[in-house]
Lab assay of single mutants.
Amino acid sequence: HITLTNLITEETTHVVMKTDAEFVCERTLKYFLGIAGGKWVVSYFWVTQSIKERKMLNEHDFEVRGDVVNGRNHQGPKRARESQDRKIFRGLEICCYGPFTNMPTDQLEWMVQLCGASVVKELSSFTLGTGVHPIVVVQPDAWTEDNGFHAIGQMCEAPVVTREWVLDSVALYQCQELDTYLIPQIPHSHY
């Protein structure tokens, strides 16, 4: 019994991606959610070859190996599938703050939850000092008015990073160091 759908849910078992011959794909929301959820992320060749051979072929032979941004053979989907007991964002409290493009905020929040993070909706909701690490995620190029994202640091004691930190961490299924993704914050004294 196979159901085809464009939506990823808890029940989804396989995410089928358009890939090149070496099982490398573009980074899409579907790709990120498939990895975050520990699903099989496979090339569409799995479907076409299975139909051709009239049997369901082994997914291992068709698993996506990499993507056009993070590298052609990083094995993120395999790492995620085999590490669902070791979520990459466990112990983190993440607030997805401000506008985002090409990806609804609720989907970004679901993605970080699938990776083990707790989501907070407001900067004031962080449970500071409880052994949980707060992180604010923003997408600077989605902000149309002044660079308000440079002043988020005044509203909460949390590192502010770009959305790329989430996307790179999920694609590779390895929590990336914050340093290269940090957004400089204007210190309090400048006000």
Rank of each mutant, 00 (worst) to 15 (best):
H1L: 12
I2V: 07
T3P: 12
L4F: 15
L4Q: 00
T9I: 07
E10K: 11
E10S: 13
E10P: 07
E11K: 08
E11N: 02
E11S: 09
T12F: 05
T12N: 00
T13I: 02
V16P: 03
V16L: 14
M17V: 11
M17G: 00
K18D: 04
K18M: 10
K18T: 03
A21M: 09
A21T: 08
A21K: 10
E22L: 09
E22H: 15
F23L: 06
V24M: 05
C25L: 01
E26G: 07
E26T: 08
R27A: 01
R27L: 02
K30R: 00
Y31Q: 00
Y31S: 02
F32L: 00
G34S: 09
A36V: 13
G37S: 10
G37P: 00
G38F: 08
K39V: 08
W40T: 07
V41W: 01
V41A: 01
V42S: 04
V42C: 08
F45G: 06
V47L: 13
Q49V: 09
S50H: 03
K52I: 08
E53S: 10
R54S: 10
K55R: 03
M56C: 08
M56T: 05
N58A: 07
H60P: 12
D61M: 09
D61P: 13
D61I: 02
V64T: 03
V64F: 01
V64A: 05
G66L: 00
G66Q: 01
V68K: 10
V68D: 11
V69N: 05
V69I: 05
N70C: 15
N70P: 00
R72Q: 07
N73I: 12
H74T: 12
H74P: 06
Q75I: 09
P77E: 01
A80P: 01
R81T: 01
E82L: 11
E82T: 14
S83I: 04
Q84C: 05
D85P: 12
D85C: 11
R86C: 13
R86I: 07
K87T: 15
K87I: 05
K87A: 11
I88F: 09
I88E: 01
R90C: 15
R90H: 12
G91H: 10
G91V: 06
L92S: 06
E93C: 15
E93L: 08
E93I: 14
I94R: 01
C95Q: 05
C95P: 00
C95Y: 12
C95T: 09
C95H: 11
C95G: 03
C95R: 04
C95V: 09
C96L: 10
Y97L: 06
G98V: 02
G98S: 09
G98M: 02
G98E: 05
P99H: 03
N102R: 14
M103L: 08
M103R: 02
D106A: 03
L108M: 05
E109N: 08
E109Q: 08
W110L: 06
M111T: 04
V112F: 09
V112A: 12
L114W: 01
C115I: 15
A117I: 02
K121P: 05
K121M: 11
K121R: 10
L123C: 14
L123Q: 11
S125L: 06
F126M: 14
F126I: 12
F126V: 08
G131V: 05
V132A: 14
H133K: 15
H133Q: 10
P134Q: 06
P134L: 12
I135K: 03
V136S: 01
V136M: 04
V136F: 11
V137M: 01
V137A: 06
V138L: 07
V138E: 01
V138A: 09
Q139T: 08
P140Q: 14
D141I: 08
A142P: 07
W143T: 04
W143V: 05
E145N: 14
E145R: 06
E145L: 14
E145K: 14
N147T: 12
N147Q: 08
G148W: 14
G148C: 07
H150P: 11
H150Y: 01
A151G: 14
I152T: 14
I152L: 15
G153A: 08
Q154W: 04
M155K: 02
C156L: 13
C156R: 15
E157D: 11
V160P: 03
V161T: 03
V161W: 02
E164G: 13
W165M: 01
V166L: 13
L167V: 03
L167W: 02
S169R: 02
V170F: 03
V170L: 04
A171G: 04
A171V: 09
Y173D: 06
Y173W: 08
Q174V: 06
Q174K: 14
Q176P: 04
Q176E: 13
E177R: 12
E177V: 08
E177G: 15
L178A: 10
L178M: 06
D179H: 03
T180P: 07
Y181L: 02
L182M: 04
L182V: 10
L182K: 15
Q185E: 03
I186N: 04
I186P: 12
I186K: 07
I186L: 14
I186T: 12
P187V: 13
P187H: 15
P187T: 15
H188Y: 10
H188E: 07
S189L: 10
H190V: 02
H190Q: 14
